[in-house]
Design a protein around this nucleic acid. Structure first.
Lengths: 188, 188
DNA sequence: TACGGCGTAGGACAAATGTCCTTTATGTTG
DNA sequence: CAACATAAAGGACATTTGTCCTACGCCGTA
């Protein structure tokens, strides 16, 4: 649910701190500020330095569907940038957020010239792919109660950090159904 | 639903036919033969030459969940190979299938030495990611009827190629629900 | 031929989930 | 302070989907 990428984070941090690469700039966002907006052109790739964002899209039915929550080291904007399309989701800061930003041309250059970075990037894509695949299959074959239990197992203080509505949007259910399940579970 | 990758297909075909690369071998499978098996170690990456396979996993609830159907140019095995894990899904031939196969070490070497291939591979991952993201959100915010209509729009002769059970598994619903919806739609 | 397996189709009922609406608490802003 | 938006909680009812079961036709094989 809250995705991170320690290896990538360390590598980028080193690049920036060692001064060997000047294509990264640092940016800050306050809670509920939007970093990328659905439907708008993307010119850079972003890597999370600290804080947490939610990555979600609004479907044609008006529902919000949360793809993932990103923490330290996760990157976003890469999909839109690589296939030259508009952002298919919105990235919104949940708490105070710092990101590293790198322009398209610099990013592509880095990808070509830095084999280690190239491999880390591929690893990041693979990790996202795997995560999405298992998440989707899990979602469609388990009850709300099972999904909630699994979440709580991994993130015990989930409800303190993420709003109920966001949890519901993440699970692809209504807030009503979430409340109902929480109550049923607490009754045990 | 039926994924292909023309660019990758053309590139690999050229590599093989021009004789400039000898790391690819060709293999054939009969309908319902399994090419990769869930839980087993993966040693190679595969690229579809012709035919169609289904990529699915069996959940702990005993359901089959179909990730995707692969046609010409799609590759599989890359996730397991890159992060050194066991196959998380089974790849089964639906009709007569031909694939190109490349061993792990050769694949990694190609990735390092052939920039064009590297970029095509990244493009393939990005395309899968995007597909999975939109598919999951669409699935969870639309009715069975809407999902079916969308499928039929894209693949008019869907039911002739893929069994009802497979369509149900792909949509994450039961066969009963699928039949019910088809009947309701035909009544209009 | 007779049987079993499999894909297709659908009836009847149960369970899960959505929709709509009301209430309460809390924090923000004019 | 009053007015207002927002999050949380849950009642009542409708709809959707799953579960279980039965039936039929097709095909391969003992």
């Amino acid at each position: 649910m809250i995705r991170t990428n320690k290896e990538l984070f360390n590598y980028i941090t080193n690049l920036v701190l060692s001064g060997s690469d000047h294509s990264f700039s640092e940016h800050h966002f306050a809670p509920s500020q939007e970093i990328l907006i659905e439907g708008k052109k993307v010119f850079s790739v972003y890597i999370m330095k600290s804080g947490m964002v939610k990555c979600y899209l609004t479907t044609d039915t008006g529902n919000n569907f949360i793809q993932e929550f990103f923490g330290e080291g996760e990157l976003f904007g890469e999909i839109e940038l690589m296939d030259d399309s508009f952002s298919y989701c919105t990235i919104k800061a949940i708490d105070m957020v710092s990101v590293y930003k790198i322009q398209k041309s610099d990013f592509l250059q880095l990808l070509d010239q830095d084999k280690k970075f190239n491999r880390l990037f591929i690893g990041a894509l693979i990790s996202k792919l795997k995560y999405k695949a298992t998440r989707h299959s899990y979602n469609q074959s388990h009850t709300i109660e099972e999904k909630l239990m699994r979440l709580k197992m991994k993130f015990p203080d989930l409800e303190k950090v993420i709003s109920k509505q966001d949890i519901a949007d993440y699970l692809g259910i209504t807030l009503r159904a979430l409340n109902r399940t929480i109550k049923a579970m607490s009754a045990i």
